[in-house]
Design a protein around this nucleic acid. Sequence first.
DNA 1: CGATAAGCGAGACGGTACGTCAAGTCTTATA
DNA 2: TATAAGACTTGACGTACCGTCTCGCTTATCG
Lengths: 203, 203, 203, 203
Amino acid sequence: MERTGRPRDPTIDGAVLDATADVLSQVGYARLTLEEVARRAGTTKPSIYRRWRSRPELVLAALVRRLDAGSIRAPESGCVVCDLVAGVEVFVTAFRRTPPGVLGALFAECGGELREEFMSTLFEPARRVVGEVVERAEGRGDLREGLDRDVVVDLLGSFVHYRALFGHASMDASEVVVTLLRGMVADPTRFARRKHRHDLSLS
Amino acid sequence: MERTGRPRDPTIDGAVLDATADVLSQVGYARLTLEEVARRAGTTKPSIYRRWRSRPELVLAALVRRLDAGSIRAPESGCVVCDLVAGVEVFVTAFRRTPPGVLGALFAECGGELREEFMSTLFEPARRVVGEVVERAEGRGDLREGLDRDVVVDLLGSFVHYRALFGHASMDASEVVVTLLRGMVADPTRFARRKHRHDLSLS
Amino acid sequence: MERTGRPRDPTIDGAVLDATADVLSQVGYARLTLEEVARRAGTTKPSIYRRWRSRPELVLAALVRRLDAGSIRAPESGCVVCDLVAGVEVFVTAFRRTPPGVLGALFAECGGELREEFMSTLFEPARRVVGEVVERAEGRGDLREGLDRDVVVDLLGSFVHYRALFGHASMDASEVVVTLLRGMVADPTRFARRKHRHDLSLS
Amino acid sequence: MERTGRPRDPTIDGAVLDATADVLSQVGYARLTLEEVARRAGTTKPSIYRRWRSRPELVLAALVRRLDAGSIRAPESGCVVCDLVAGVEVFVTAFRRTPPGVLGALFAECGGELREEFMSTLFEPARRVVGEVVERAEGRGDLREGLDRDVVVDLLGSFVHYRALFGHASMDASEVVVTLLRGMVADPTRFARRKHRHDLSLS
DNA sequence: CGATAAGCGAGACGGTACGTCAAGTCTTATA
DNA sequence: TATAAGACTTGACGTACCGTCTCGCTTATCG
């Protein structure tokens, strides 16, 4: 049996998502009410609940729509530095598209499978792109062996997320990338001789 | 004239903060209600509102109490690696003491001076400790010159925050520290010769 | 368009009015709280406020329900004395059905159109019945001419109300009726001859 | 033992009673708050509670002060009609001096010994004056025998109270007095012959 | 082509929690 | 030592919004 009954008005989906994004950017997540969203979208609460089961689910959908993950492309310049800088900017773009604080508040309300959807739709796309950049750099032998790719990706991603979220300092993509690539120690060989014998040598 | 009027019942403060922390860890920030907190603390809403002007202010106070920032001490082993690993563990401790997601949700509702208090009481203590570790390492000449100390601190702190928040992967303090200290490139000298001429040399 | 929206649960109306009457008779008007009424009725405050705009409006509705004005019938025995005694008992019944003091307290809080409703639903029915008794007695020529019917009705009603309210003395319907019918002077003719020349004669 | 300690500020009593009467006439009994009274009297709540144990006790005191029962004098013209008309006006004066509705609302909140005080200070003075008028008229033989003096007094008082309270009709003292004195029946003798044999004869 | 089924706007529903007002009490400093 | 002053704890307030339900209607597929 096919779907019967009156089909959903397809214009409502977009209107509601747009209204949600508007309200979100104007009053934030905590003060977003479905009644206001419905009012702005020119529809009613039941029509919203028919499409999204809960408030976080709706907001997630609105953010995903704004993020437009499909448009994210991994840079391929052949240069680790350039690619990673571009990769960091992918994160910057991703986080900039969501009003500040919404991500944290939304995440806090997402439980169970909604949390999984949150991760896979809002977080994975950017992480995957940067992961590919690292992977290619490894393939070219540009990176030292033994790196945990997830750690590298999260070091970049978390930094951007952190500063975008708390906004206590600005972001300079190339400085972070260079710091990560070069390392921080003045002389790696010094530490191998000391009593703790940490291995900081390059291989 | 001195202080007049009935003094506040000092036991209420503690009971409310404890109840807040309990509710927070059981139902999360979004479903925390002042009525439930009041019920568990054996008091009433106005008594809470007299002490903390709003829900975020109360939760912030409860988290600060849990964090016990005064107890945080900067490690001083004389070894950068050990100190930084210990420093990362300061972050881990700090974020582990707050239920997952609360920090982001709380921050989203903090505006104005409350946001400043959020930063200075919940974030700065751990950042300051790690900052001191880095500063001492620089003083000993263990780190290369030109590092932006804030970037280093946030690279460590954000990573921990990120993984504590989203919980998508575990944390290995020493791996992150080693990655940051050693750097990621296989051969820093390769990049100076190439067309983009990124300077990855050590000085 | 016709009536839309979810229809009201009709059982709540009755449960709330019953609970109101119960609370009223147990703690009086001043200590009646909507929260207690809601608790006893097994519902909540907003459901009450949706039906009655204010506390006096609710109490008025509960009293009107108790009074059951529709059941009040004018006696028609053909005898003024019997009819008036029965009429006084209509007042007695009306005031006895409301807990003492409630009427005065409620009236004090009724303003504007609520006051009009108070008068027309709680007072007029009994006054109208007694008014009809007086009217019929006049038609039969049982009463002397020139009587102000409203004064007569209020003389009977106020006496009952007064004693029911302040409870300082019991009520004997026939004594009041006889006093009013017979008059109080020993010899009406005496007063016409005196210097003030008050006319107490019978026509 | 004498009274020891700091003496009460005697000016506070009057200031509070005046403020109470003011608030009462402006917002009514239901919306009278002790905080507003204290504010207007230039004092504080505990100073009020030290003098009057409760809100109704305070309001009662304020009304008694307004009523000034000591000034009420029984008229002694020697004419029943004149005296009773003057007596009714004593009632009118008494009820007119209290804002409409306050009496009922206050009475509803008075329980136990406060109720007794309410009766003896607000009600008895006027009733006693009219009672004396009736007593003297009886002594002169102006009234028929067998009258219950309390019924007579309450017939007059309740009528005034009733119309003052509910305000649905104006008051004409002489009409009420004449109605009561003359009685209402057209021919008293008619009723003795009928089957019910009510005794409406004059002795 | 009529019956069936689902979605629609509309809006009120039952109910949780809110943030505030004012009652009456308690404590400290003052006279 | 009892007062005046002020801050206290607490019950109840009236409201906003949640997520659901009912209505009368419209739009589609199915028999």
